Computed example of a mutant assay.
Amino acid sequence: MNKIVFITGATSGFGEACALQFAEAGYDIIINGRREDRLKQLKKDLEEKFSVRVLSLPFDVSNRDAVFSAVDGIAGDWRNINVLINNAGLALGRDFFDEADLDEWDTMMDTNVKGLLYVSRAVLPLMISQNKGHIINLGSVAAKEVYERGNVYCASKFAVDALSKSMRIDLLRHNIKVTAIHPGAAETEFSLVRFKGDAAKANAVYNGFKPLTAKDVADVIFYCTTVPEHVCINDLVICPSQQADAIYFHKE
């Protein structure tokens, strides 16, 4: 029987790259996202290219009832989840604190923090019943330093950092690993979403240096799940070589 990985936010970026990476390694894949058309296409692509099983679960991670209903409805051996990748998340806006949009604040906190909490809490009983599992939480370099006009996005990722540490401690007794992955600048849909579809602003973020790709991050995530059973990578920051942290870059 193949191992099973559950990936939230699988319709683009790190999530989609992880789905491809794990499917290539022979995992059966549970994919989640809000865009059902993209989930349907991804399911088709994974099944045809890698001959693995794929279960599609379209729901919004910030909707608590939808999360628990979807996970409770998982049947049969699909319940034997080995790896959960809490990837769903986003940034909205780059505004000064006193000028920011409150709805955007709510969306970031609901998705980046509450979504991670809901999905983890829903999936954990399935891992606990096996007395094993591995949870990967996608943070950010913004979880390590606060930068100007980052306010609530940074706060949400600081929360992911703290929750990952807390989960690691609390889940020791269940033999469940927890790893926080904190990527730096990566060329995905992230900036396009942050700047509300303004491609010029989004592309300018990556001028003057070579950013990470989604596959770079997926490679690291996969590696963290394949270390020996007695090894756990608790916390990992990955940046382009021309980026030191959330603030400092060398651009040419």
Rank of each mutant, 00 (worst) to 15 (best):
A25N: 15
G26M: 07
R35D: 01
G26H: 05
G13H: 02
R35L: 00
T11Q: 02
N32M: 00
R34P: 02
A17F: 00
D37W: 08
F14G: 05
Q21N: 08
Q41W: 06
A17W: 00
S12T: 15
E24N: 14
D37Y: 08
Y27V: 15
I29E: 06
E16F: 05
F22A: 10
G9L: 04
K43H: 10
A10P: 07
G9D: 04
L39K: 12
S12H: 09
S12P: 01
I29C: 08
R38C: 08
G9C: 07
I7A: 05
L42V: 15
E36M: 08
E24R: 14
L20H: 08
I29P: 10
I29R: 09
A23D: 09
I7S: 05
A19P: 11
I30K: 09
G13L: 04
T11C: 07
C18H: 01
I31G: 06
G13F: 00
A10K: 05
G13A: 05
G26T: 11
E24K: 15
L20T: 15
N32T: 07
E36K: 13
A23F: 06
I29A: 04
D28S: 07
A19R: 11
S12Y: 01
I31F: 03
G9N: 07
E24C: 13
R34S: 00
I29S: 09
R35C: 00
A19W: 07
T11W: 00
A17P: 04
E36Q: 12
Y27H: 12
R35I: 11
D37Q: 13
A10V: 09
E36S: 08
G33W: 00
D37A: 03
G33V: 09
Y27A: 10
L20I: 15
I30M: 12
C18M: 01
A17G: 03
K40W: 09
T8N: 01
A23M: 06
L42P: 14
I31E: 03
G15A: 08
T11R: 01
I29T: 13
R38M: 12
G33S: 04
N32V: 07
A23S: 10
A23E: 08
G33T: 10
Q21D: 05
L20Y: 11
I7F: 03
L20G: 02
E24D: 14
T8Q: 01
A19T: 15
F14K: 06
Q21G: 09
G15Y: 04
R34D: 00
G15K: 06
A19Q: 10
L39E: 11
A25F: 11
R34I: 11
K43E: 11
D28P: 11
T11F: 00
I29F: 02
T8P: 00
G9F: 02
N32H: 02
G15M: 04
Y27M: 10
G9R: 07
A25H: 13
K40G: 05
A10T: 12
I7Q: 06
R35A: 00
D28F: 04
R35P: 01
C18N: 04
Y27D: 12
R38Q: 14
G26R: 11
N32S: 05
I31R: 09
K43A: 12
F22H: 13
E36L: 06
L20K: 08
I7N: 06
I29L: 06
I29D: 03
A25M: 14
A10G: 03
D28A: 02
G33P: 10
Q41C: 11
L39D: 07
F22L: 13
D37P: 12
E36R: 14
A19L: 09
